[in-house]
């Protein structure tokens, strides 16, 4: 039963969506059923967020309780989760209080705007330093393929910025548009299309395996 029920649910839900894909949404029964499955999908998605919050609390609480290595960071994570979540959740119980909830002027909004955004932005901006360092050390023309990659990357990097474009235009007036036409909309486009088609075929195969109950790793076992 523990194996049969999830496979049956996956099969029926998947089958409804596959059949609904080929029909108009106002077709009786199947249209309503597919919309019902989608609503359920969104509700289940909400519960996965709850599960994530419970999991992060449990893992970090245990680390703090047992004083594991680096437990201070776990404590900061734990405090941050609750400090962000509580004012947002309290909005449900005290809708009239401006500080609660997630709207403009709420504590959650203030913390997100003035703490979370700058911190995330800082972390992302640090990539520029590491990319520069990595480019200096690792981007070497050791082979013909690496040389080709290096030259193409440099050409695209120049093309993507005004000063670089000015430099390319100084070499030949059509060079920037040639980069767009032949590198980005030519070689790049065809390679990306191949990757997208390959990934789509893989996803279709995996979906079919799940529908037929061959693929069961989503249940936590092979």
């Amino acid at each position: 039963m523990k194996q049969t029920l999830p496979v049956a649910v996956a099969f029926i839900s998947g089958l409804i969506m596959v059949v609904a894909f080929f029909m108009r949404s106002d077709v009786p029964v199947i249209g309503g059923l597919s919309q019902e499955v989608l609503i359920w999908g969104s509700i289940v998605g909400g519960f996965t967020l709850l599960l994530g919050a419970a999991s992060i609390t449990r893992v970090n609480f245990n680390a703090v309780r047992l004083r594991r290595s680096g437990w201070g960071f776990n404590l900061i994570t734990l405090v941050s989760v609750f400090v962000m979540a509580l004012p947002a959740i309290l909005g449900t119980f005290f809708p009239g209080v401006r500080w609660f909830g997630t709207g403009t002027g709420s504590l959650y909004d203030w913390m997100f705007t003035y703490i979370s955004i700058p911190m995330q932005g800082t972390m992302f901006a640090m990539l520029a330093f590491y990319i520069a360092s990595a480019a200096y050390r690792a981007f070497r023309a050791r082979t013909a393929e690496a040389t080709l990659l290096l030259l193409t990357a440099s050409l695209v990097m120049l093309w993507r910025v005004p000063l670089g474009e000015w430099l390319l235009t100084a070499i030949h007036s059509d060079l920037p548009s040639l980069v767009n036409t032949y590198v980005m909309s030519g070689v790049n486009l065809s390679v990306q299309r191949g990757i997208i088609i390959g990934a789509a075929l893989g996803a279709a195969t995996m979906s079919l395996r799940i529908l037929l109950g061959i693929e069961r790793t989503y249940m936590g076992r092979g």
Binding site: M17, S34, Q35, L38, I39, W40, G41, S42, I43, V44, G45, G46, T48, L49
Partner: peptide
Amino acid sequence: YKPNYVSVLRG
């Protein structure tokens, strides 16, 4: 925001 973007986009 609503969870499960595939359901949201289709729904």
